[in-house]
Simulated assay, not measured.
Amino acid sequence: MATQRALILFAHGARAASWAAPFERLRDLTQAREPAVRVSLAFLELMSPRLPEQVAALVADGVLDITVVPVFLGQGGHVLRDLPLMLDDLRVAYPQAALKVVEAAGENAAVLQALSDYCVASLAHPSPH
């Protein structure tokens, strides 16, 4: 049997629970498009599960093909410094798992184009004032 695959959408986290709502919608939309893949959220701080907890849970369930998608607009210190260190630790802790990380969402040309489309479309809507 093929190893089940997982996609972890990795976001920053915030104190306000409402902050996670768009990420939950993104997770649900992604899960609907890839029913054979386990799609979950993980957070850097302030919210649960944190990335190490989520990887541990997946590996414990026998999921060894894991892709981490940083859902960050900018490549700040968290993506450039914290995430690689976290992944190094996780690769040592779970050598049986294939952990891959892709570019931050905001570094992807298609994501930026979609955001630009949204910004330009806002010009077509009259101001409420």
Rank of each mutant, 00 (worst) to 15 (best):
E34Y: 15
V101Y: 01
A14L: 06
A97R: 02
P70R: 12
Q96K: 13
A36H: 11
A114H: 09
A121D: 14
L7F: 13
E107Q: 15
E53T: 04
A124S: 15
H129W: 13
L46M: 14
S48D: 13
C119V: 12
M86C: 11
D117Y: 05
F72S: 06
A2L: 09
I8C: 09
E45R: 15
L7E: 13
D28Y: 08
T67Q: 10
V101R: 10
G76K: 14
R33L: 14
V59K: 02
L83C: 06
R91S: 00
S127N: 08
Q4Y: 03
V55W: 02
L26A: 14
E45F: 10
A11E: 09
R25E: 09
V71I: 15
A121W: 09
H129F: 09
A56R: 11
E24M: 12
D82V: 01
A121L: 04
L26N: 05
A57K: 07
L64I: 03
P84Q: 07
E45I: 04
P84V: 03
M47K: 07
A2F: 04
Q113I: 00
V102Y: 06
P128A: 12
Q4C: 03
I8F: 08
A114D: 10
P52I: 08
Q113W: 04
A56Q: 10
A109S: 13
D61Q: 15
M86D: 13
S127M: 08
A20D: 00
V55L: 08
V79K: 04
F23Q: 13
A121H: 11
E107A: 15
S48R: 06
V101K: 05
R81H: 08
V59Y: 04
D89I: 00
P128G: 07
D61H: 05
S116N: 09
A93G: 03
A56S: 13
G74N: 12
Q75F: 10
K100P: 00
L87I: 09
R27T: 03
D28V: 08
P52C: 07
L46I: 06
P95S: 02
N108C: 09
W19K: 05
P52Y: 05
G106H: 10
P52T: 06
R33V: 00
F43W: 15
L44W: 14
G13W: 10
A105D: 00
L7Y: 13
D117C: 06
A32Q: 14
A97M: 01
K100Q: 12
L80I: 01
A105H: 02
L112P: 01
P126V: 12
Q75A: 14
V63C: 15
L44T: 01
R33H: 12
P95A: 01
A36F: 01
Y94N: 00
